[in-house]
Design a protein around this nucleic acid. Sequence first.
DNA 1: CGGTTTTGACCTGCGC
DNA 2: GCGCAGGTCAAAACCG
Length: 188
Amino acid sequence: MERHQLLFPRSTGAMTPPSMAFPFVFEAGGGDRVHNAGFGGDLMGSSLHGFLGLKGAEAGMVPRSNAEHDVAPGSSACESAEKTGKRKGEKKIRRPRIAFQTRSQVDILDDGYRWRKYGQKAVKNNRFPRSYYRCTHPGCNVKKQVQRLTKDDGVVVTTYEGTHTHPIQKSTENFENILSQMQIYPHF
DNA sequence: CGGTTTTGACCTGCGC
DNA sequence: GCGCAGGTCAAAACCG
């Protein structure tokens, strides 16, 4: 698999079938600098309603078998507990996840939220480590994973998990440029 | 000095 | 049951 799948969880309540997933690649700034891109804000209200909002979404999981050796969503999310001190005995909470690719020289695209890195891990079948970030806003448990593709180190896969419970924290006007350059691949 | 990053250890789920 | 791989914690280091 080359392209990562972007999942738009629907409100149907049914598990989103893999066929609904489509790769989602946008390229920004000719691959030069992307770090001023920002999500959220107007984005949610216009072009991609619910992109990071994911209101009421539930599914968004890709079956492990579908992901094979690919990055992000295949990783079956152990994300077990909410890490409030204990890890065991809690049920699995599956949050909506969105994964997409960007072509960028930098790993971190600035989506307008503040993120704190809490881990980095080498993953199999990938030369590049995966980085784990959490939204620093109090009470907001949104996480994201960032990983560069082995096959194309110009491509960064970002996986968002969860819903921001607060407004975006800084201007996202740059991101609209990204959106306008966004490329959606209807098949993969 | 407060917030962020780094990094090794630890925990959990899954496949064999 | 065991080992592997992925995800998270937490202390120390780093930086503005």
